[in-house]
Simulated scan of single mutants.
Amino acid sequence: MMEIQGIDLSIIWSIIIAFGIMMYVILDGFDLGLGILFPFISDAQERDVMMNTVAPVWDGNETWIVFGAAAMYGAFPLAYSLIFEALYLPLIFVLAGLILRGVAFEFRFKATAEKRHIWDKAFIGGSVLATFFQGVALGTYVSGIPVVDRQFAGGAFDWLAPFPLFCGIGLLLTYALLGSTWLLIKTEGMLESRMRHYSRPLAYLLAWVIVITCGWTAYLQQDIAQRWLHGSHWMLTCAVVVLAVIALYGLQRSLRLRHSHKPFVATLGLVFLGYAGLVISIWPNIVPPSVDLWQAASPTTSQLFALIGTLFILPVILMYTLWGYHVFRGKVQVGDAYH
């Protein structure tokens, strides 16, 4: 165990990495969700408004996934190598989707009206591709990565299985719900009403996906099912389930009462609880089912050196993220321009 005077650096780093990935899921989740919702909006002005709600911040949102990956490389190099080798192809597809979406985002506003539909399709395709394969990567990770003698012992197409593909569909629904509730905050008129109409069935579909995913996970991984009910874990499991039901009820109620911010907050709560459930399911493993934090950790001196730098960098990233959202708060109107 990597400890300095009673401080376990591996646990500190696991919290930092988990926080960075969670920030990415939240911030880039509703961003990608807009692209998933794009096919259901045909009006050109409404599509412009949708994109303008994230135009000032979308590229900054992706900072967090870079931060999470870099932190894992420095603090848990074995986990980094195993995970990226096992998920090489899905992550390549994620990267391709993010590139396609980014290019489409920039070129769409510069294209003529006759050619803008090309970049709309690219924006949709990039968003769906990146989201779906993030879900596939997550499903493959939860299914377990085979490791023998500290090396990946699986195949290049282990991800091409029913459970990871179902997780890909589940993440599409998750990001779509994040996107639709985000637009309740940022838009008005017919677009806001349409998003409110879409959010209710999306929430119910997501609830069913969560139930199926939990049952499927318990069936595939008996050790995870035992961990949910072992020792004090059963109290955490019950707490997550109860809070998820409350969040779902709060989401539906706030939609009926036509709140603008509460549906997004409730959706964030559902996403956070799902993330907490994942942590409960695999802890203390960082490469399930067999590699824990301390087996994958880099030397103490390396973790400490990287932690000192992170203590300076992380607050800066947080500050400019919060400042960006503060500056561009409020509703986006038709005619607001992105340059």
Rank of each mutant, 00 (worst) to 15 (best):
V147P: 01
V147F: 06
V147N: 05
V148A: 07
D149V: 00
Q151S: 15
Q151K: 10
Q151T: 14
F152H: 13
A153L: 10
G155C: 09
G155H: 12
A156L: 13
A156T: 13
F157C: 02
L160F: 15
L160N: 07
P162I: 04
F163W: 07
F163T: 02
P164C: 03
P164Q: 03
L165Y: 06
F166I: 11
G168K: 02
G168M: 03
I169N: 03
G170F: 09
L171D: 09
L171W: 11
L172A: 13
L172F: 07
L173N: 01
T174K: 01
T174R: 05
Y175N: 09
A176F: 09
L177Y: 07
L178T: 07
L178I: 05
S180V: 08
T181M: 04
W182T: 04
W182H: 13
L183P: 13
L183D: 10
L183K: 00
L184W: 08
L184P: 10
I185A: 05
K186A: 07
K186S: 04
T187N: 06
T187L: 06
E188G: 12
E188H: 10
G189W: 07
M190G: 14
E192R: 09
S193D: 14
S193M: 11
R194I: 02
M195W: 01
M195I: 02
Y198G: 01
Y198M: 12
R200H: 11
P201T: 04
L202C: 03
A203G: 06
A203P: 02
L206Q: 12
L206C: 00
A207E: 05
W208D: 04
W208I: 14
W208R: 04
V209W: 15
V209A: 09
V209P: 00
V209K: 00
I210A: 08
V211L: 15
C214P: 00
G215H: 07
G215T: 08
G215M: 10
W216A: 12
T217M: 12
A218W: 03
Y219K: 06
Y219Q: 09
L220D: 06
L220I: 08
A225W: 04
Q226A: 12
R227V: 03
R227L: 07
L229S: 15
H230N: 12
S232I: 11
H233Q: 10
M235T: 03
L236G: 14
L236R: 02
C238N: 11
C238E: 08
A239N: 04
A239K: 03
A239L: 15
A239R: 01
V242E: 03
V242T: 12
L243I: 03
A244V: 02
I246G: 02
A247G: 00
Y249R: 11
Y249I: 15
Y249H: 11
L251C: 05
L251D: 08
Q252P: 00
Q252F: 11
